[in-house]
Nucleic acid binder design. Structure first.
Lengths: 135, 135
DNA sequence: TTTACTGTAATATTTATTATTACAGATGAA
DNA sequence: TTCATCTGTAATAATAAATATTACAGTAAA
């Protein structure tokens, strides 16, 4: 997996911690130490998932769209997730091999189960729980 | 994450399924549909972790080093794993930001807990369980 | 001593991720 | 109205990671 999950978590933590009305993408990007355009891209995704509200124009910026207590870490995961927690090989296994011809189905089933267990754990934690760990 | 986990699982499934004494890297690579050198590289890693035995020279090849029942999917995960199930950002967050200066510690703690829960689930499944799903 | 394997390194290629640049559109304020 | 400041998004470039390829030394059986 790539760095999208920690970045999303960072963004949402910032928004849940600020007393300011709106926070700019420049400040957010500066805190994470990434490019503002990249920050806006991830923010845009999080906004589409209903976590963030934005206001355009001068004095615009971002804020949480709902209380941190109502956002679980599983919700955030689903907003940025890869197809599966464990990686997928992009090869097409050999259909003439007894193992090759069945392995994709069996891996798929295993992964479904693992993803489910993983989300169950993430479900128990809210953004508020996470941000409460900060001073 | 990348395709190493499914590849490792594929290799070990093949070895647990074959009645042949030794299986060649060429056959293994052919079943997965990857390059033999890449297969040998992952095999080499799995051998270092005690899952596979190899024999060099003419008529050489690979076999399981211990019964599939004694290998859990968690063992395999640990042999190929990334630092964490969820991705890490490689950026250094801004130390002048109250959130930025603490987030790495808090993410690290979260990830430890998630990895632990994830491994607990993988621990319940053996390679034998997985290979039993094949005809 | 030839043949068929593994072991491993070096290199090339491809793909994925991240960064950069650019600019249209929105909004508030002078 | 017009300027300044912000978001939204696309296009492109740069970098990094994953994978493929090639090569060949070492080993062991026939």
């Amino acid at each position: 997996m790539n760095g999208r999950y920690p970045i999303a978590l960072h963004i949402l933590t910032l928004l849940s911690k600020t007393e300011l009305e709106l926070m700019s993408s420049e400040y957010i990007a500066g805190s994470i130490n990434i490019n503002p355009a990249l920050a806006r891209k991830e923010i845009s995704n999080l906004r589409n998932h209903g976590f963030i509200e934005s206001k355009e124009g001068k004095g615009g910026g971002y804020s949480l769209a709902k209380p941190a207590k109502q956002i679980t870490l599983a919700d955030i995961y689903r907003a940025v997730k890869e197809p599966h927690v464990l990686g997928l090989a992009k090869n097409s296994p050999n259909p003439d091999c007894p193992v090759g011809k069945q392995i994709n189905k069996n891996i798929e089933e295993l992964y479904e189960e693992l993803d489910h267990a993983f989300l169950l754990k993430l479900e128990t934690k809210t953004l508020e729980d996470f941000t409460n760990q900060f001073d």
